[in-house]
Design a protein around this nucleic acid. Structure first.
Lengths: 195, 195
DNA sequence: AACAACTTCCACCACGTGGTGGAAATCCGG
DNA sequence: CCGGATTTCCACCACGTGGTGGAAGTTGTT
């Protein structure tokens, strides 16, 4: 499979896991390589050997996070229901891993500043999700003849993503007060004209 | 008025302003007192003389930020329209000061982790806004006999705040793509049953 | 068993960190 | 214009930072 020996791959994996937690708690700038390495039971120079520098480690963490919830096989036909439930499932899974959610909240907020190492990566992440959502919204509006939303499919998609991100931040700040997955699911199904 | 000499107060003010920008760009953990002091044209020990420690400076920044958009006088009667336009005005003003918005986005995200020095402060901030919104929503629902929203006034208020926060993050990451104040205004007026 | 590729750690570097103590300069009410 | 309160800077501290170089140990292939 990938490069390196099995030992090395395992170490890399445990470093990424520790880094995800740490970045989530203290942000990219507030986390030290040494603290990550310590948590992973490894010297910090070992970490640098595997990832080269701090930024590369951050990007590896994001990549790993995104790979977590990827669908393994696609259905024959992409339906609005499939997409909606896919995203809702992601929201539900997120609720099980608050550390990762915290990570992406902090990174997304930090990346609002120009010059952040993960800015471009996170922009593309948003764009990908937004374009899928906007496409489904557009198809659904045509199919169902909906015209009561004053927002364009693109704007509506952006608002949903914003709400999703915002709800996750709200939940971290006020744990257990909201049912985030349910609220995300409802926002999606409303926008898609389901039910 | 407040304590100290006029010179000192002015210095304090310029430190707070520099800190707001810096915290917004690098977060609380990623910002150094020395960089703030340098930007304010002051030695970093002067900064510590005025604020004591880094956390106290952060809280001073948040306090100052909130004082910025406070209404100077209240109308005789609090109407839903007044509240809606008040919040919408804040959203519009925020669009003029992207640095401060960036600051609060990063802090809110960071404060999702336990142990963050501004966690409690930001929780109370949210609670205050949420309770005002929920109250208006409840009053409006009774007055207008609305019952088509499956969410409780508290949940609806939380969703609006989340959307607001999320839209500001989205805007920082994709500058100029959305009209944030207009979207916030619409979300508020929808929830309040206005128009 | 041989040997290169890979992994890991230790020692080190220059520099930045938050915070302290004190001494000089400045402010402002009496 | 005096004198105590306040402000400011300089020097310093112990420690943490990201990153480098090299030497010893491990892995997998031939």
């Amino acid at each position: 499979m990938p490069d390196g020996y099995t030992t090395g791959r395992a170490t890399k994996q445990s470093i990424v896991a520790s880094a995800a937690t740490a970045f989530g708690e203290k942000g990219f700038y507030g986390t030290s390589l040494r603290s990550i390495a310590r948590e992973a039971g490894v010297d910090h120079s070992t970490l640098l050997h595997h990832f080269g520098n701090k930024t590369a480690l951050l990007l590896a963490v994001i990549e790993w996070h995104d790979a977590q919830g990827m669908p393994t096989d696609l259905p024959a036909e992409i339906t609005a229901d499939y997409v909606a439930e896919g995203f809702a499932g992601q929201a539900a899974r997120n609720a099980e891993t608050p550390g990762l959610v915290q990570l992406l909240s902090v990174l997304t907020a930090e990346a609002g500043a120009e010059g952040h190492p993960a800015r471009e990566t996170l922009q593309k992440r948003h764009d990908l999700v937004a374009s899928v959502m906007a496409w489904v919204i557009r198809v659904q509006r045509e199919k169902l003849g909906l015209d009561d939303d004053p927002l364009s499919p693109e704007d509506r998609a952006a608002v949903i993503i914003a709400t999703w991100d915002g709800l996750q931040m709200y939940d971290a700040l006020h744990p257990g007060r909201l049912d985030v997955p349910a609220l995300v699911r409802r926002a999606l199904r409303d926008a898609f004209g389901l039910e």
